[in-house]
């Protein structure tokens, strides 16, 4: 679990890491949208998107091993809905870029860019910063508060689940499928009861510090973007526009 925790890598003194979270959200999200709207035959465009991300990876010193893990983890699920395509989809004679192989390529490259861009964002921005960024972009308070709670306790509960799983396996778990399903159900039920009670205790802890349901978990003041942020955002966006619309195949 901790292995896939990307945002913990974030270090404050790196140029990319120290950009305002809004800047990174407003460049990397659009990159995913631009890439997804690019026709599959624009090979050079995809090459440029990848190059852009590779440059960011180098600048931000993101560990390659983590990135590879991410791709490998997603790979089976991408293949599951794309690997059959070359076998079932025939090429349409009027369009040279149709057919199974192009469809397959289309899905794989777009998923790749999507995962890559998202990983660059989270590897260089801590979750708390990301939430702050969204708050400054005027996302609803309540939603952000719920996201914070979910993210904060996800790991606590996953560790709890893993401990239960280990305890279960240590007692020669196995046997008939129906029995296994029941055991898993009981584990999940216990997990729920514990998490609910934890929620109640968290609420008490909040009350003890003066919570009355109105306040948010973070500071609301909005800092202006710096010159570096504008420079980064503008140059990134121009790269995307050039790569998407300026490239002639």
């Amino acid at each position: 679990m901790k292995d896939t925790l990307f945002d913990q890598q974030a270090s404050p003194d790196n140029f990319i890491h120290s950009l305002d979270p809004r800047t990174k959200i407003l460049t990397l999200f659009p990159l995913i949208f631009v890439s997804t709207s690019t026709p599959p035959q624009f090979l050079l465009s995809f090459g440029l998107y990848s190059l852009y991300l590779i440059v960011l990876t180098a600048l931000a010193r993101i560990p390659i091993k983590l990135l590879i893990k991410r791709f490998l983890m997603a790979l089976p699920f991408i293949l599951m809905v794309s690997a059959y395509l070359p076998f079932v989809e025939q090429q349409d004679l009027s369009n040279p870029y149709s057919g199974g192989w192009w469809l397959f390529w289309n899905m794989v490259i777009k998923a790749f860019i999507g995962i890559y861009a998202m990983s660059v964002l989270t590897a260089t921005t801590r979750f708390a910063k990301l939430i702050q960024g969204f708050a400054r972009l005027r996302a609803p308070q309540l939603l952000l508060m719920l996201l914070s709670f979910t993210y904060r306790y996800m790991f606590v509960l996953v560790e709890e689940a893993q401990r239960m799983k280990r305890a279960r396996d240590a007692r020669a778990y196995g046997g008939r499928w129906l029995w296994q399903a029941k055991v898993i159900g009981q584990m999940i039920g216990t997990l729920f009861l514990r998490s609910y009670e934890r929620g109640e205790r968290v609420y008490l802890a909040m009350c003890s510090r003066g919570y009355d349901g109105t306040q948010s978990l973070w500071q609301n003041s909005s800092e202006a973007l710096g010159r570096r942020d504008y420079a980064f955002a503008l140059s990134s966006i121009s790269v995307f526009i050039l790569a998407r619309w300026g490239v002639v195949i």
């Binding site: 708390a128 914070s148 306790y153 003066g210 306040q215 978990l217």
Partner: peptide
């Protein structure tokens, strides 16, 4: 259990929660 008391995304925000209230 400190996990019940530290509910914010970062320690800084947890410590700031009371004073902000």
């Amino acid at each position: 259990n400190p996990d019940d008391q530290l509910f914010c995304p970062s320690v800084h925000e947890d410590v700031a929660f009371g004073p902000r209230n």
